[in-house]
Write a protein that binds this DNA or RNA. Structure first.
Lengths: 230, 230
DNA sequence: TGATTATTAAATGTTGACAAAATGCAGAGG
DNA sequence: CCTCTGCATTTTGTCAACATTTAATAATCA
């Protein structure tokens, strides 16, 4: 698996795309905080590259939602409000549910034992991580679970949208909130999804996925009200 | 309603964005056909603008899916295969279903009589267009119906994704196919969606919308097999 | 003194030129 | 006659400079 995540197949790394990756990394790592202004010249200097190249990278990031542009006034790291988070959850849930339904449909047309086995193993690993109270392992497995399904759906555009949404959600102030604590509940929801897919039942897959995301939003909002002022 | 569709509020028209609109228009109007190569210099000349500006516009269109880029080899108007169309349908359906569910949810929280009335009027107008066999009126009303719901959902990002998907679908060779003939059936599906929303029932809204899009795909595929070689 | 208007500095928008890569063609060799 | 290699042309990638717009500051006037 490539870490740089080249957008499309035939597209070697170009300078601008490297710069894009670097700026994206800085944003997601929190080195550039939400609301911060991005000065093209400063960035160009910092990256030892021309201003035009930085500009191209910034425009690209703006198109994918990480950056907001104001004409003649520059680029800003987007700030995501709690209201927008709900919208992002809704949208991500829709894409995820569709992916689960499409995967179940595909499994009905052409069996995919490897996929089912991989999903079940992920479930087992998660249960183990839960027993061991291994948070970071759980976190990784959770991401892997969703990625697995998005890949299995064989819908590249959907995956691209999904990935962009996940990145955009990271913009929400305060990291760590996303690690919802009700792991046991979450695992059971995953299990329901896997079963629906194994049974090649798109409708049930969609419903299980929708429930999962909705209860995820619920947990998120709870954590939020606990943590206070927003 | 603005025809140029400015992506975000605070963003006056800039040269590059005008160029972007113009290229987009040429693609959707069929003046630039799928698979065609876009020469930056030629376009710059044709639009009386610098190459850099054209380049910026092209990159932006690539990010939204209308154009495919190959490093050091240029930009091409994307070709959409029949396989991809199914994926696009799936994704568009997911977003649309989510929008219907979100709208129904919102109607449950705060009544929106104007919305309901507008939707019902759209239904009536459609029935009239059907009786009069007025295809172009039906076509417009159909688009308006979907736009209405996407707006009502109050999820700008979802609307942006939806609009991009619709544009991308237009890339499929042969125009006019999208006008599915089973208008009567389609109207009844719309009616079911409106009722679910009027009843503030998100779950039913989502299901009705999903059915609508799925049967739309079915009609599309039929038309396709009729029209022959693909 | 306070507010309004010039002036000035900084940042973005736009352009044309230079460098690197890819494609097409021609000629040599088999 | 076909294939492979090397050169020339074309096209994209990158850069530095110019133009325009915005924001900040200073100066003027009531």
């Amino acid at each position: 698996m490539n870490t740089t995540s080249t957008p499309l197949g035939l597209k070697r790394e170009t300078l601008a795309s490297s710069v894009r990756s670097e700026i994206e990394r800085r944003i997601l790592a929190g080195e550039l905080v939400a609301g911060e202004k991005l000065n093209e010249a400063v960035l160009a200097d910092s990256l030892a590259v021309s201003r035009g190249t930085v500009r191209e990278a910034i425009r690209s990031l703006a198109d994918s939602g990480l950056i907001a542009l104001k004409t003649n006034r520059g680029a800003y790291v987007r700030t995501v409000t709690v209201d927008e988070i709900r919208n992002l959850y809704d949208l991500r849930g829709a894409v995820f549910a569709m992916a689960c339904a499409a995967t179940a449909r595909r499994v009905g047309e052409e069996r995919d034992d490897i996929l089912i086995a991989t999903l079940k193993r992920n479930l087992e690993d998660m249960r183990k991580a839960y027993r061991d109270d291994n948070r970071s392992a759980y976190y990784e497995l959770n991401i892997a679970f969703h990625d697995l399904l998005l890949d299995a759906a064989r819908n590249p555009k959907a995956k691209a949208v999904y990935d962009a949404l996940v990145k955009e959600m990271h913009l929400f102030r305060k990291r760590g909130l996303s690690i919802s604590l009700n792991i046991a509940h979450s695992i059971e929801e995953h299990s329901a999804i896997v079963e629906a897919i194994a049974d090649a039942d798109p409708q049930r897959g969609r419903e299980a996925a929708t429930r999962h995301i909705e209860s995820g939003l619920g947990r998120f909002l709870e954590t939020l009200s606990d943590t206070a002022q927003y």
